[in-house]
Design a protein around this nucleic acid. Structure first.
Lengths: 336, 336
DNA sequence: AACAATGTTGCAAGCGCTTGCAAAACGGGA
DNA sequence: TCCCGTTTTGCAAGCGCTTGCAACATTGTT
């Protein structure tokens, strides 16, 4: 195939007049090399255009420096924001991100993970989809670390990062109540992931506790279009809810757009609305959506921190972290 | 570090009662193995949980299967859409995507590329930022293929994928003219990339040719906030333009929002607006933005097609492809 | 029955690197 | 000056894999 005429450590060694090991050590942080040798080596390397072969290094060290990011719906605002944080933080600790897209058929998470294993990834971070328990065990057995974001799972071993979804559902109910809303609804997708359901359950529970009317509608995936459909359904009911909590911002945007443009309903005057994620669009002046912010930066930090932590510290670390979603107050809910 | 107790081909060979080479060949498409041996090997591999070590394989084959995606602003709608297409198409041809985020400081593209070299990536796809010419030569010399998307460059060797930006600028002028607009403006960012400037030049040239008034305003990056600022500037002029072409959709959304909400200007009644990219939000009913669609799927196809093409065919291939951006007609321009 | 053509298999070398080990070089007391 | 403790260096083994080569097995042909 391609020529690939890479210069090897041997060539560098010869030009520098030192041994092959010397050049290896020069490029290994913390190895013992005299300043003089190091200089000779780096000069030669520079001149020859030498670059350490991470494949070979990974082979020897049994540590590739690769972290797999397993994700579906990459093009979605929340996902891509998380991706940005993750890749940049990984780079900061000298790791490299391998992106695996699981948009397509079933079992793709498993396929992805087995690819991660083939490349001897040091770790995998699962942003979406849930791997088979056996695969999880396989990863762990093979010394691979696993991080599950917003996807609860019984299996022990992986680090699980979750939000206080249930509590967020509760909190928004009090906000709605304070705005004078008596009948509430939750607009959800049919995806049924733990975080989505957590929000739903918290919301419903709190509403009931306060004696407010509450109902749930579920449809499609968590996108803009689904939000439109949900609006159709909820806003044509004989008893129209006065406040809607959408499981995601994308849903909320679609909902708000059809409420306003198709039904001519004023938000927040006639209808209060809230979302979840705090995607960029939520702050756009067409929406001004009150929503819960996913702490993406913090999520990413926790994840890569855990990955770059040593084995020893590992054991004393909690394998589950729970972050709180901050309520960002904008204009889609009436002031009390 | 981690235990990493991987099972090797040798162990599989022993369990299957064949030679090490046999198991290697079993996992090499097109190698010569009898059905019987293959069965024995796959059974043993299954039982032991064997996974080919791509690091070692890449080392031998001098072909890692890795493709580097060099990108900044991953979280931006257009970029993430392109990323989605690219990763999924790469997976289809059996390659794996390594994501390199260049959001940060200067020289980050060069650093990224040198990382790509260290991992012996078969190719790099540059979605943003322009590498130093010397680095480009280094990549090519090292047998790495390079794809430059929307970033023209003199250097021969890489595949360059571009759109008909200039022509798009021209086309939208006639659309504006047909809508009865006599004074036009182009809202650009200060990024000054070739594609952005191409749109600008085409727009200005065509406007002048038609004898229409035209001006240009540039500010910040190509995001929503910059669009707001551009609107401030353009809409407070004594002679307000009747039609604005924004260099990107994000700019257009910001522009439209402040035109409507801050200045109370009706779009398209009092102001015609167009964008570029056709991000999801352009179709949301709050915007209904008339815009040019980036053919992301086609761009991705061309890119990975070129990467997976053989060396021989390589030479007869054009090293530059030019795709056309389709004008998506929505409601931000008055009907003629 | 002998032979050629074809297909399958194992051997062993080698990809580019790291690293334990022991030898060499160095530096500072005494 | 000599000796001992501390770097620094080179050697060589080995990481897990592929692949050219030659040996071997299988089959079909005359």
């Amino acid at each position: 195939m391609p020529p690939k005429d890479f210069v090897s450590a041997l060539e560098v060694a010869q030009r520098a007049g030192v041994s092959r090991s010397a050049v290896s050590r020069t490029f290994t942080p913390g190895a013992s090399v005299s300043a003089e040798t190091r200089k000779k080596v780096t000069d030669a390397a520079e001149a020859l255009g030498y670059h350490v072969n991470e494949l070979a290094r990974g082979l020897m060290r049994n540590e590739s420096g690769i972290v797999c990011l397993v994700v579906s719906d990459v093009a979605t605002p929340y996902r891509s924001a998380l991706l940005r944080e993750l890749t940049s933080k990984l780079q900061n600790v000298g790791k490299v991100a391998m992106l695996i897209n699981t948009d397509r058929s079933d079992g793709s998470v498993d396929r992805a993970l087995s690819q991660a294993i083939r490349y001897r990834a040091d770790a995998s971070i699962i942003l979406s989809g849930l791997p088979d328990a056996s695969i999880v065990r396989l990863c762990l057995k093979n010394g691979q670390r696993l991080v599950l974001i917003n996807r609860d799972d019984e299996e022990p071993g992986p680090l699980k990062i979750n939000l206080d979804d249930f509590e967020a559902g509760e909190r928004i109910v009090t906000a709605f109540a304070r705005a004078g809303c008596r009948s509430l609804a939750f607009a959800n997708s049919e995806a049924g992931t733990p975080s989505l359901m957590g929000r739903e359950h918290g919301f419903v529970a709190a509403a009931k506790k306060l004696g407010l009317e509450v109902s749930v509608e579920r449809y499609g995936w968590t996108g803009y279009e689904a939000g439109r459909v949900l609006a159709q359904r909820l806003l044509t009911r004989t008893q129209r809810p006065e406040a809607i909590f959408c499981a995601t911002d994308l849903l909320a945007c679609g909902f708000m757009d059809t409420a306003r443009h198709q039904f001519g309903i004023g938000v927040p005057q006639q209808l209060c609305l809230a979302g979840f994620d705090d995607i960029d669009q939520a702050s756009w002046s067409s929406y001004g959506l009150t929503t819960f912010a996913q702490p993406v930066a913090e999520i990413a930090s926790k994840a890569v921190e855990w990955l770059s932590t040593s084995e020893a510290a590992d054991n004393i670390l909690h394998h589950s972290v729970r972050l709180t979603a901050e309520l960002i107050w904008r204009t889609s809910i009436r002031a009390g």
